[in-house]
């Protein structure tokens, strides 16, 4: 079950996220739950696969803002990294980063 403790264990900077929610635990957990059905990691992967780095950057950028605000550090760290690479449209192998992101998302989903 998704709780403050399980999120902390997962590696989220819960204190930071909670402060931003005026220390309202219910609201914070609600927001975190709302990102679980989000399918944009798959969209990001597809865009990179299609070579559409513009779309990939936009998607990564959006995810970065969302995860950072919720202080979901295990996700926001690799997403920030990929965003910066995509900002300069770097041609590189993104699969490692994508795998990390997918793995961390799956971990979150399973909480």
């Amino acid at each position: 079950m998704l709780t403050i403790d399980s999120l902390r264990e997962y590696g989220a900077d819960v204190d930071d996220g909670m402060k931003r929610c005026l220390n309202n635990e219910g609201f914070y957990l609600d927001l975190v739950k709302s990102v679980i059905p989000d399918t944009r990691i798959a969209e990001l992967e597809a865009a990179i696969a299609d070579g559409d780095l513009d779309k990939a950057f936009e998607t990564a950028h959006a995810l970065k803002g969302m995860y950072s605000n919720l202080a979901l550090t295990p996700l926001s760290a690799p997403v920030t990294e990929i965003t910066e690479l995509l900002r300069s449209r770097t041609q590189t192998d993104y699969s490692g980063l994508i795998d990390t992101i997918k793995k961390k998302k799956a971990e979150l989903d399973s909480l």
Binding site: R20, L22, L31, S34, A62, G65, M66, N69, L70
Partner: peptide, 15 residues
């Protein structure tokens, strides 16, 4: 455009 951001910011400002 990001619902989470909208909700979060709205939550703060609506105080």
């Amino acid at each position: 455009d990001e619902l989470v951001n909208r909700r979060l910011l709205g939550f703060i400002v609506s105080r």
